[in-house]
Design a protein around this nucleic acid. Sequence first.
DNA 1: CTGATATTTATTGTATACAGTAATTCCATT
DNA 2: AATGGAATTACTGTATACAATAAATATCAG
Lengths: 244, 244
Amino acid sequence: MSDAQAPEKRRAPAKETKNSKEGDERHDAIYRAVSDAIVEQRLKPGARLREDALADVFGISRTGIRKILQRLSLEQLVTLTPRRGASVTRPTADEAKDVFDARQLIECGLMPDVARRMGEKEAAELREMARQERQALRSGQQSVAIRLSADFHVRLAQLSGNATLAEFVERLCSRSSLILAVYGHPGHLGCESHDHDDLIGYLEAGNCERAKAFMSRHLKAIEASLSMVEEEDNVPDLQQIFGG
Amino acid sequence: MSDAQAPEKRRAPAKETKNSKEGDERHDAIYRAVSDAIVEQRLKPGARLREDALADVFGISRTGIRKILQRLSLEQLVTLTPRRGASVTRPTADEAKDVFDARQLIECGLMPDVARRMGEKEAAELREMARQERQALRSGQQSVAIRLSADFHVRLAQLSGNATLAEFVERLCSRSSLILAVYGHPGHLGCESHDHDDLIGYLEAGNCERAKAFMSRHLKAIEASLSMVEEEDNVPDLQQIFGG
DNA sequence: CTGATATTTATTGTATACAGTAATTCCATT
DNA sequence: AATGGAATTACTGTATACAATAAATATCAG
């Protein structure tokens, strides 16, 4: 099936790089397209990402694709194996633990700053995001819901005013989506439906200690909902199986 | 003056890529060479990094150089301006504040885990690092001392066992070196000579609350030692200078 | 001699060609 | 028939050539 089909060639648009887009925007759009596909689990962990195939799909050369893959690799969304190419990262159980521990530390630690800067406008924006998330969940669009949930956490972190920490949270949330994709139960989404609304309430009231504790429980709940069974199909370890 | 000199050409080694190194290692070595040069302030903030020049120096083509520059850019050690090329990042005052706030949150939050995993071997290793740092400081090698200090903080974070957070700390420490390069006083290094030794003592004793508080003061002291005068040479604002 | 415009130069952005390596397939031999 | 080996194939790694754009310099009018 399907890698290098596309008999109708439309290599033309590559010519008018200057005309159509500034080129940078195009790259960014492609980056986001791939990143979103990974986070929304349309590209599943372990899926190979061949450079030629991606280059064909997006109508740019492998050069640009490689740049994007390298970036995704540094963000640990794809794994770049030396001469084997790129594939969607399959997080290990250890990595999952690290990610959620990191989220505990950073996201909870950010709550005081967030509470301090939370105004009416910010609260309204967050509530709207929470509403969309609930709706996606209700209509069975789990992938979309996961993404919206991640967006919520990231937006929250951005409200702290610390761009550096917000970026860290962004990366942690992307990876969390991957972790959910691998270890989460199909039916059961990480975040409970009304958790985010409750959190907004505490933050708006300036009750940052309460918000902190709630965020902590919230993240613990997500982590606890995972079933951490390591895929051990690699290297069956015949010695142990047959009693060496 | 003087970027593209180097009349004596030794382009030979580029041929034997397969023979000499696995290629990946070579790239990593070059990455580290550039990164170190930035952190040690041999490449000063604002310095332009021309692709051709770097390619000549390291004997690889621009392709590899671009990959390395992109990585450094994602780590915010170099700034990649669309058609102007790469230059060593000059952190703003805001960024500096974000970085030190982030270090407060993460490094202090890591102290309990570090204390728990601190054994004799680990303490000895850290003491050795602290010793080297003190020695570099005494012999006037400020750049080296800055790097060793950053290494110390990173190693400490790694001892927490959380690779993700350790990586964050690594990035924060690199950026801190840049910040010190821009805003630090020439004679006065960030870390006091014996701070790190004291910290090891608290950690070895398992006194994690004390270690946390000490780390917090330590980081505050570094930040306080900076003179946060924004370089405002860009857009001199003649109106204000000459009284409009 | 000053200022604006044109030309040249320097440098990055992108694609493509070629080389090298791992995986697959096919064939021969036991 | 199963295994070992050789040839083919598929894919990534790297360099280089070419295009496009911004900076620098020169030229000319006033």
